[in-house]
Design a protein around this nucleic acid. Sequence first.
DNA 1: CTGGGGAAGGGGCCC
DNA 2: CGGGCCCCTTCCCCA
Length: 512
Amino acid sequence: KPPGSTGDSLSPNLDSQLCQDGQVFPAFKPHPDTLDSHGQSWASWLCPWPLAPAKSALLACPQGLDLYLCALQSATLATAPRGLREDALSARHLPPRLPAGFFSDEKLPAKCPLSRDKMGSQTERAGEGAPCPSFSPSNSSSPNSWQNKKSPLAFCSCPPTPPNSKELSSHFCPFYPAYPFFLPAPYLVTYGSLPSVPCAPRFKLPQDTPYATKAVPSLLINVNESEHPSTSGETLHSYPGACQDSGQTQPSQSQNPGPSAARTYSMGPERAGRAAAGKRAPLGSQAGSAALPYPLKKENGKILYECNVCSKSFRQLSNLKVHLRVHSGERPFQCALCQKSFTQLAHLQKHHLVHTGERPHDLPGSNVPDTVVPGRNHGGKLPGLHHREMCHKRFSSSSNLKTHLRLHSGARPFQCSVCPSRFTQLVHLKLHLRLHAPRPCGLAHTHLPLASLTYLARWHQGALDILAAPSERQMDRDMDKVKVSSASQGKVYLPDFTSHSTWQVMGHSQEE
DNA sequence: CTGGGGAAGGGGCCC
DNA sequence: CGGGCCCCTTCCCCA
């Protein structure tokens, strides 16, 4: 229940309900036909998401500083999987909130590894709403791990443990006792960015399903092929017959280019993952090749080859062919060392420098041996920015060298249109421009507990009330005082609408 | 948080 | 067609 709430419902406008066996129950009222296997009625901490649309079947449950959101979908027992049916049937008739020891142990399905005492010891933290029951298999003393049982948990896509949440070291499955409810993948909700962290898939498609990613045998031909391509040397062979659709191309020994094709680089099909990307824009089996018709245009008497996908024009047919790989996903140039593939050989060549450490681009006048690969020899600063003779940096890319040369020349071609700031790289200007952009809501990245969300809902309701009754100027002034800052240790200052004079610290940072 | 530097990849143009 | 080069972008890391 939200703090200060007097009724059963957070908002009468919300219509979150629980449906079970054709009956409809308010979400806040403990369902008499539920199992209290967690030391407290699960219905007591089921509450509708305050900001969810009306008629929402979304249920929110706080877990520490996190808020888990689950959507309910009713299903009949007949349609439930067998194991789920059994668990539901064994659990759904147990009344909630009965004294400890009321049940015989055998009636309590050992789905929850935590004892009732332990679960009951979870005290409700002030301002954060009721705690959610959590499962801690690692701490479980029960040999019957719920993970290994054929239980409804197997069908619950429990949210993964957020890496930044020290409290949530266990999985959370709020609807465990209350089947038949099928739970779509819930999301760890960060307020303002729903959904922010999709639940990691608990189940993997069988390998024989048509959706399973099928590894494509590499067409890369290595001399002294070994288990680890990285150990097979750097001698690669071209693959002139590489087809862009690696998912359909089968390797063939006849496609061995032979000794004459021995090169430093490889030309092979794209990796399986890339093949999937290529299939997103299927252009036919010969996309990117000469099989595509090229609309011809003329500009100043010269033929223009137009891409039939993006209508981009090229003056050379070969450029269009290369360009079409962008749409087809064809990446015929594959590195033998890291299996990365590229659309152009030049890109593979440039990439190859990553493995060799070669940095052919150095500053003009530099006589540093090519093997030198200095680190950050500027120490993050360039005193005076005109110490070319002191800089021995070399670069694998001429572009990066050019960017670096700006440091020596002092050129800062990217100027902010708002302030006099200038930058050497466009990306830095873009980042800088974010400072001038309006920030509509600092809460967008604030991790709020449910209680804060509750007050936020009240705040929004209050704002609506003000719009409806603008005469309440005092409240309006209070509304102007609302301070929401993620930089203030996660505290959220909200006006107390009851006194119009006090402020309440609603939120807490994760560090707290 | 912001500014800054560098690594690396990608698309395109030209010879 | 291959190769070189350019420009742009994203990402990462550091101060």
